[in-house]
Amino acid sequence: MRKNKSTSDRLRGTLDALILTALSGGPLHGYGVSRWLAGRSGKALRVEEGTLYPALYRLERLGWIEAEWGTSELGRRARFYRLTPAGTRQLAVEVQTFAEFVAAVSPILLPPPAALGERA
C-alpha cells in the first residue's frame, strides 16, 4: 500500500479504483465503463476518453484486469474487460487508501459546523 502518494498518483489511484469498481460487477467494454461511472455518480463524473482508455490498457498491463473479444450491442465485436483475482485484491487496497485519505482530509476541509470559527 503506497501511503505517501503525489497528487497525480492519487488521482490515478482514484481512477483505478473507479474502473476496478465498475468492472467488479461483471465484464464491460470501455464505453460501458464510462456509462456506468456516469450513471453511478448521477452524471457528475465523466471520465474523458483520453484518460479512460490509457487507464484501461495500463490496468491490463499491470495484470489487474484482462481483456477478451466479445460481441457488443451493435453487433460488432468489442474488447470486454474483466477483473482478475489480483485486481480484486488491488481494488480493496485502493478503496482502503482512498477511505484513509478522505478520513484524514475531511475534518480539515469539511469540519462539522460547531467547530467553525474555533482555533485548533
Binding site: 476518453e49 483520453g50 482508455y53 490498457y57 495500463r58 498491463r61
Partner: peptide, 22 residues
Amino acid sequence: RLGDRRALAAACGRQARGTERR
C-alpha cells in the same frame, strides 16, 4: 470528445505492448 486519436492510440499501444511482454 475523443480528441487526438493518434496520441490516444499511441498511448494505448504502448501499454498494450507492455501487456504482451508480461
